[in-house]
Simulated scan of single mutants.
Amino acid sequence: MEPVIPSEEEFPYTIRVVSEVLMSNGSTSQGSVCGSTLALMDAGVPIKKPVAGISAGLVVDENNPDRFVTFMDIQGIEDFFGDMDFKVAGTKDGITAIQVDIKVDGLTEEIIRQAFELTRKGRLHIIDDVLLKAIPEPRKEMSKYAPKIISTSINPDKIREVIGPGGKMINKIIDETGVKIDINDDGRVYIFSSDSEAGKRALSMIEGIAKEIEPGQVFMGRVIRVTSFGAFVEFLPGKEGLVHISKLDKKRVEKVEDIVNVGDQILVKVMEIDKQGRINLSRKDAMEGEGESKKN
């Protein structure tokens, strides 16, 4: 199964598959391969291809080794009295694993060729007529009871901002969403949550903090502080800027509170980032841009 398991970046989970065999009259290992494929797909693990496994057996004439017969899907008695248990697992595209047990001195090229051909036919039959008829593809969503892990990558230089002084920012995200967060030194971020919506909200906050701010970008922000000369607006988690009173509206503004108050949601445009990293915003320019978009 290992060749079809998604990468850690695609699916950052530890996977444990348990196969409990209640009765055996054939290859339990290859039955486990088929059962594992169904279990993983049903659980929402995005495996690359379905995998099936089947075994081929062999009986050789003791008096004339050139006389032999190969057969597929051996039962227990055939395994006990036969001369070979040739197990092959794989996808439609190729083989992922082989295990061979033999009781003869060796296998001829013809025996091996027949074993591969038999197991290929059996493997394709199982995939097309059993596995894919039961579940045609991995489920798009995992069970609502499964823990959710969301991963993303940020610029390592932004890790400090995501964590914040004394862990202030990351603790704020955790308190507001109830998630757990791990950040690796290379910028990989893992968010753990039993609530997918909370996980997505935490992801949005982290990506917002790590986002590169450039003049011209427009955001929906929240007024967090009002002064006589303007309003401070948080437009991304941990990122705020000043909307000067002259940039609050298209008309002249006498008093900031005539236009906005603390808690208001307003559209703002990034106008400038000065040498000290302070961000100047404009509601007036954001409104003009929105008006132009509606005209177009």
Results as ranks from 00 to 15, higher is better:
Val51Lys: 00
Gly277Arg: 07
Tyr190Ala: 06
Gly238Leu: 05
Ile77Pro: 01
Ile149Arg: 15
Arg222Pro: 04
Lys251Gln: 10
Phe192His: 14
Ser55Leu: 06
Glu62Trp: 11
Pro237Leu: 09
Ile5Trp: 01
Gly208Ile: 11
Leu22Val: 06
Asp175Trp: 10
Ile15Leu: 08
Leu281Ala: 06
Thr177Phe: 02
Val268Pro: 04
Ala231Asp: 07
Lys250Tyr: 13
Arg278Met: 07
Ser151Pro: 04
Ile173Ser: 00
Gly90Asn: 01
Gly26Ile: 04
Arg222His: 09
Val162Lys: 04
Gly208Arg: 09
Leu118Pro: 02
Glu197Val: 13
Ile150Gln: 07
Gly187Tyr: 05
Lys144Asn: 12
Thr108Ser: 15
Asp274Asn: 13
Glu2Ala: 15
Ala231Ser: 11
Ile74Gly: 08
Glu109Phe: 08
Asp83Glu: 11
Ala89Cys: 09
Phe232Asp: 10
Val179Ile: 08
Thr227Pro: 06
Lys247Val: 00
Asp101Glu: 14
Pro136Cys: 04
Lys168Asp: 10
Lys103Asn: 15
Phe229Glu: 12
Asp61Pro: 02
Arg123Met: 13
Ile209Ser: 03
Gln75Asn: 09
Ile173Ala: 00
Pro136Met: 09
Asn280Pro: 04
Ile163Gly: 10
Lys275Gln: 09
Ile181Ala: 03
Ala134Asn: 11
Ser27Leu: 03
Gly263Ile: 08
Thr37Tyr: 01
Ser143Met: 08
Lys103Ser: 13
Ala198Gly: 07
Lys103Ile: 05
Lys255Asn: 08
Val243Pro: 05
Phe68Pro: 01
Asn64Arg: 09
Gln114Pro: 00
Ile149Ala: 13
Gly31Leu: 02
Arg139Ser: 01
Ser193Trp: 11
Tyr190Gly: 03
Phe229His: 12
Gln75Lys: 08
Glu207Phe: 06
Leu132His: 04
Asp42Gly: 03
Asp185Thr: 11
Asp175Asn: 15
Met169Leu: 06
Ile77Ala: 14
Phe235Tyr: 13
Pro138Phe: 05
Asn296Ala: 07
Glu20Arg: 12
Glu2Trp: 14
Ile126Met: 03
Thr152Arg: 09
Pro12Gln: 05
Asp85Ile: 02
Phe232Val: 11
Pro215His: 14
Arg222Cys: 07
Glu8Gln: 14
Leu132Thr: 07
Leu58Val: 00
Leu40Phe: 03
Gly230Met: 06
Glu2Ile: 13
Gly44Thr: 05
Asp42Trp: 05
Gly31Cys: 10
Asn63Thr: 13
Phe80Thr: 13
Val270Ser: 04
Leu118Val: 05
Leu248Gln: 11
Pro138Gly: 05
Lys251Tyr: 11
Thr96Trp: 03
Arg252His: 08
Val243Leu: 06
Met23Tyr: 14
Lys284Leu: 08
Val260Ala: 14
